[in-house]
């Protein structure tokens, strides 16, 4: 009987740095159109888990499968081509280029026009239109001409989300998208993520610390602790679990010792 593959799956995914096991045999699968929050204390391996999925790190053992196909050995751009999009925790943009150019570059990558040597980039009107469309969506259109380095932090976070929207991948990974944003800007980002999930049927993975954000967005939570998956389920259930109260919310004394570990 033919079984429908989950869009993204990790099987026993593990990475060791010397003696330290940063991600320890994590198996999880993600269905189309779902939004999964990944939580855990600092150093639990959340960002490392993301890096293993998007390819910045290669797994020591285990596998990453996209639509049932192993992508564990592929490079970062190959995984991006296959449909994995990634936003970063620390803002990670093209600082000397304009806001519009940042998004245009993503549209250009998607249209596979990067190796076009003979035409003038500005003549590809469809890429500029696509960029402006996305910028309008994240409410950055009036800053399109500005250089990214001169942008306030909140706008850089918005641009980070804009790049993922422009990429339009099947799987979108956000690493603390609202970190360092002002209170009135947070809902803008959350609305965008919600829209990506519902209107575009994207599968979203979200690393987030703010419980209210998780409650309002996630249909599922997985909890990492010391690199291992310790809980997986619907938000209400998972938050109520003692292991989560202990590991994530820091209800016991030894939680503070764990939070000091490096990822």
């Amino acid at each position: 009987m033919a079984k429908e593959h989950p869009i993204l799956e990790t099987r026993d995914l593990t990475i060791r740095f010397g003696g330290h096991v940063a991600v320890d045999g994590v198996s999880a699968s993600f269905e189309r159109g779902s939004l999964t929050a990944i939580v855990g204390p600092n150093g639990a391996g959340k960002t490392t888990y993301f890096n293993l999925i998007s390819g910045q790190l290669s797994a020591t053992s285990g596998a990453v499968l996209l639509n049932g196909e192993a992508i564990t050995r592929l490079s970062v751009p190959e995984r991006t081509d296959r449909g994995i999009g990634r936003a970063f925790q620390l803002t990670n943009l093209f600082p000397t280029l304009s806001v519009r150019e940042n998004v245009r570059l993503v549209a250009q990558a998607k249209a596979r026009k990067g190796f076009d040597l003979f035409s003038v980039a500005e003549s590809h009107v469809e890429l500029l239109e696509r960029a402006d469309h996305v910028l309008a969506e994240v409410r950055l259109i009036d800053k399109a001409e500005q250089t990214v380095a001169a942008l306030p932090h909140g706008d850089q976070r918005k641009l980070e989300v804009a790049l993922l929207i422009a990429l339009g991948s099947q799987v979108l990974m956000f690493d603390e998208p609202t970190a360092g944003m002002s209170v009135d800007e947070v809902p803008v980002i959350l609305d965008l993520i919600r829209k990506l999930k519902s209107d575009m049927d994207r599968t979203i993975l979200l690393v987030e610390h703010k419980m209210d954000v998780i409650r309002s967005l996630a249909d599922r939570i997985i909890v990492l602790h010391n690199g291992a998956l310790v809980a997986d389920g619907a938000p209400a259930e998972v938050i109520a679990l003692p292991v989560v109260q202990e590991a994530y919310l820091g209800k016991t004394p030894d939680a503070s010792a764990n939070s000091g570990e490096a990822a």
Partner: peptide, 9 residues
């Protein structure tokens, strides 16, 4: 690093 992550080799 980011150029790779948006799909450029």
């Amino acid at each position: 690093f980011r150029a790779e992550a948006i799909g450029y080799r």
